[in-house]
């Protein structure tokens, strides 16, 4: 079942096009990773989904309802964590969490206490004394203490330490096990790799790639480390080989997925001693897409 969907979403600020026909679909029980460089349009998309900005063209729906017109109804069943949260300096963290809970109307007190302990947040302190990480915890506790159906997380772990980041990941997976859906916009690729079922990459306001991590990996290169009995003479001339480096005992390079077969048939004649292959990381994917246009390399 589709929980969140945008169709040809377009947003213009004057003559500047911030979003240009963005399509996103998040299904129930799925963690959707939304990645892209700064200024690509992630936050604009999220703000349209939250009904804070009106799309110039296209549709944005959550739970099958229009994001702008039915904002209030939708917001009863979602929880949002922004990447940079400002709080009221003269209220305590506990007060803010309760306020958010009261406004949403579905806070789970038991979960609230559990999360406060887990995230190690002192709810009695005034918000003005919180560091960035602690302010972020206020938003996270408030979000995960809610029995929401959809969580929209916009770079939620900025400012958190690695330990807290682990706890965040646990909380996301727990929510997923309960059948909740999550839209996670992030810069931390290891986080996306570990958590997300599907990934969408946005650049310059356009979705340039969408799919499961598996599917996306097919589009990219595998890293290979190779040692052979006899040196391979014309390795660099083989199709699909990139970034060839001569190491002490062997060579390392990257190979386009579609050339994998022909390359190994060729090198097997030289007596393979050692072969290590690493799947492309999301980082490779990411970098390649970001640099894509300027580099103009083969795909």
């Amino acid at each position: 079942m589709t929980v969140l969907q945008t169709k040809q979403l377009t947003k213009k600020f004057g003559s500047f096009t911030a979003l240009d026909g963005v399509d996103i679909q998040v299904n129930q029980g799925e963690v959707y990773g939304f990645i892209g460089p700064n200024g690509a349009g992630k936050s604009t998309t999220i703000r349209i989904l939250l009904g804070m900005m009106k799309a110039t063209q296209g549709e944005a729906e959550i739970f099958g309802k229009d994001a702008w017109r039915k904002a209030v109804d939708i917001h009863r069943d979602i929880a949002y964590v922004p990447g940079d949260l400002n709080l009221w300096p003269n209220l305590t963290g506990g007060e803010v969490i309760d306020l958010f809970g009261k406004l949403r109307g579905n806070m789970n007190q038991e979960k609230r206490e559990k999360l406060l302990r887990r995230f190690d947040l002192d709810p009695e302190k005034k918000c003005r004394t919180y560091s960035k990480g602690n302010r972020q915890k206020v938003a996270l506790v408030s979000a995960f203490a809610t029995d929401a159906d959809l969580y929209i997380l916009d770079e939620p772990t900025s400012g958190l330490d690695p330990l807290m980041e682990c706890i965040f990941q646990e909380s996301v997976l727990e929510a997923k096990q309960e059948g909740k859906s999550i839209l996670l916009s992030s810069h931390i690729l290891s986080e996306v790799e570990q958590l997300c079922d599907r990934v969408g990459i946005i650049r310059d306001g356009k979705m340039i790639e969408t799919g499961t991590l598996q599917e996306l990996r097919h589009l990219t290169r595998t890293s290979i480390y190779l040692e052979t009995k006899q040196p391979v003479p014309a390795l660099a001339e083989q199709g699909g080989v990139h970034n060839l480096e001569i190491k002490e005992d062997g060579v390392s390079f990257q190979i386009d997925t579609e050339y994998m077969d022909s390359l190994f048939q060729y090198v097997s004649g030289f007596g393979i001693v050692k072969l290590e292959s690493a799947p492309p990381t999301l980082e490779d994917l990411f970098m390649r897409h970001y640099e894509g246009t300027s580099e103009g390399g083969p795909s």
Binding site: R47, L50, M52, P82, L103, R104, G105, I152
Partner: peptide
């Protein structure tokens, strides 16, 4: 932004 993400008009 945070307030508007809640069910407020």
């Amino acid at each position: 932004e945070m307030i508007r993400s809640l069910p407020t008009g």
